[in-house]
Simulated scan of single mutants.
Amino acid sequence: MLPKIRLSLTPIIAIFACTAFSAFLPATAHAAGALDRIHANGVIRIANTQSSPPWSFLNDQNKPDGYDVDMAREVARRLGVPKVEFVADSFKNFVAGLKTDKYDLVMNDLTPTPERMLQVDFSAPYGVEDFRIFVRQDNKDIHGDKDLTGKRIGVSTGSSNESWSRAHLPQAIIQTYENGSLIFADLGIGRIDAVIISHFGGLRYATERKLPIKEVGEPLTYQLSAAAMRKDEPELRDAVSKAIAEMKADGTIEKLGQKWVGKEYDMVGSIARAEAEAK
Rank of each mutant, 00 (worst) to 15 (best):
L98M: 13
D121S: 15
M229R: 12
S165Q: 01
D138N: 08
E218C: 08
R204C: 04
H39R: 02
D266P: 10
A23Y: 04
N93Y: 14
E129T: 15
A167G: 04
V106G: 12
N48A: 10
V128R: 08
S51I: 04
L35P: 02
Q223C: 15
V216C: 12
S56P: 07
K4V: 15
A239R: 03
I197P: 00
T28I: 12
L25N: 04
I15A: 10
P170F: 00
F86C: 09
R191L: 01
S160P: 09
I44N: 05
L182M: 05
D121M: 12
I12T: 15
I244L: 08
E178P: 00
E277D: 11
D232Y: 07
L58N: 05
A88F: 07
D138R: 08
P54T: 09
S22I: 10
D70M: 11
T149C: 11
S51Q: 10
S225W: 07
A34L: 02
R77T: 13
V75G: 03
T252E: 04
A226Y: 04
T10W: 00
A34N: 02
S156G: 08
I38A: 00
E129S: 15
S198Y: 00
I192A: 00
D147I: 13
Q50P: 05
E246R: 05
I13A: 11
D141E: 15
G66W: 00
T100L: 07
L220I: 15
P125A: 11
G188R: 03
D266Y: 06
R116V: 14
L105D: 14
I253E: 05
G158T: 11
P54Q: 00
K140Q: 14
A72E: 04
I192C: 03
A14L: 05
V43A: 01
T157G: 07
K4P: 08
K279S: 10
T49H: 02
M71N: 03
D60V: 05
I44M: 03
V155G: 04
Y265R: 10
M117N: 11
